[in-house]
Simulated assay, not measured.
Amino acid sequence: MANIVSERYALSLYEVAKDAKKDELFLSELTAVCEIFAQNPDFLKVLSTPSIALEEKQTVLKNVFAERMEPFLLNFLMLITEKNRIGLVSDMCEAYKEMYYLENGIAEVCAVTAQPMSEALTEKLRQKMCKVTGKKVVLKTAVDPTLLGGIVVKVDNKQFDTSLRTRLSEMAQQLSNTIA
């Protein structure tokens, strides 16, 4: 959950993007920026380091992103760098995404399985979740072999766990309660 500072910056960015009818584009580009920072944590450290002059940081941002993103979004990155808030960019991105999803009737669903799901099964699950939530669904999948089988689905703050690991654990707990 993003903090209040991140939410305010994200809200300001979202309002500008929405007015310009570029809210989806900004989400895509901001997400890409956050992925770059996640893959290159030293890059974010450079932008956060107080001993490096602001002009140098802004030059680096321009060199890396000027040709890759909307000018307003680049200016936003330079502003949050100037205000020493660049370290919160991931939280800002998350808050922006939440606003975009809420306003556009989108639900993010995460499905974790023991084995990778086929394309057909993934699409079937996405369609089922669209019916359950009544929203468009962005389905993210992950693999966790420790589940043994079944599926764990997370929607909003709810989790539906039908994994074999959980069922075996529940059975073991019932047996130990029965025997004890």
Score class of each variant (00 low, 15 high):
Met129Arg: 04
Met129Val: 11
Cys130Phe: 07
Cys130Arg: 13
Cys130Tyr: 00
Cys130Ala: 14
Cys130Lys: 15
Cys130Met: 14
Cys130Val: 15
Lys131Pro: 01
Lys131Glu: 15
Lys131Met: 10
Lys131Gln: 15
Lys131Thr: 12
Lys131Asp: 13
Val132Ala: 13
Val132Met: 14
Val132Pro: 03
Thr133Asn: 13
Thr133Pro: 12
Thr133Asp: 13
Thr133Ala: 08
Thr133Glu: 11
Gly134Asn: 10
Gly134Ile: 09
Gly134Met: 14
Gly134Ala: 12
Gly134His: 11
Gly134Gln: 12
Lys135Cys: 12
Lys135Val: 10
Lys135Gln: 15
Lys136Asn: 09
Lys136Gln: 12
Lys136Val: 06
Lys136Trp: 05
Lys136Cys: 00
Lys136Glu: 14
Val137Thr: 12
Val137Pro: 03
Val137Trp: 11
Val137Lys: 10
Val137Met: 10
Val137Leu: 07
Val138Lys: 09
Val138Ala: 06
Val138Gly: 00
Val138Pro: 00
Leu139Glu: 02
Leu139Ser: 03
Lys140Ile: 02
Lys140Ala: 02
Lys140Pro: 00
Lys140Glu: 08
Thr141Tyr: 06
Thr141Met: 12
Thr141Lys: 09
Thr141Asn: 15
Ala142Ser: 14
Ala142Gly: 12
Ala142Ile: 00
Ala142Asp: 11
Ala142Thr: 03
Ala142Glu: 11
Ala142Trp: 08
Val143Ser: 07
Val143Tyr: 12
Asp144Phe: 04
Asp144Arg: 09
Asp144Glu: 11
Asp144Val: 06
Asp144His: 08
Pro145Met: 01
Thr146Trp: 01
Thr146Met: 04
Thr146Leu: 00
Thr146Gly: 01
Leu147Gly: 01
Leu147Val: 04
Leu147Arg: 03
Leu147Tyr: 00
Leu147Thr: 00
Leu148Lys: 06
Leu148Pro: 02
Leu148Glu: 05
Leu148Ser: 03
Leu148Ala: 04
Gly149Ala: 13
Gly149Tyr: 02
Gly149Phe: 03
Gly149Arg: 06
Gly149Asn: 02
Gly149Cys: 01
Gly149Ile: 01
Gly150Ala: 07
Gly150Met: 08
Gly150Lys: 03
Gly150Glu: 06
Ile151Arg: 04
Ile151Thr: 09
Ile151Lys: 09
Ile151Leu: 12
Ile151Cys: 10
Val152Gly: 01
Val152Tyr: 06
Val153Lys: 08
Val153Glu: 11
Val153Gln: 11
Val153Pro: 11
Lys154Glu: 13
Lys154Gln: 15
Val155Met: 14
Val155Gly: 13
Val155Lys: 11
Asp156Trp: 02
Asp156Asn: 14
Asp156Glu: 14
Asp156Thr: 05
Asn157Cys: 02
Asn157Phe: 07
Asn157Trp: 00
Asn157His: 14
Asn157Asp: 15
Asn157Gly: 14
Asn157Ala: 07
Asn157Gln: 10
Lys158Glu: 13
Lys158Ser: 09
Lys158Leu: 11
Lys158Cys: 08
Lys158Met: 10
Lys158Arg: 12
Lys158Gln: 15
Lys158Pro: 02
Gln159Pro: 00
Gln159Lys: 00
Gln159Ser: 10
Gln159Ile: 15
Gln159Asn: 05
Gln159Thr: 14
Gln159Tyr: 09
Phe160Pro: 01
Asp161Gly: 02
Asp161Tyr: 06
Asp161Pro: 05
Asp161Asn: 09
Asp161Met: 11
Asp161Ile: 05
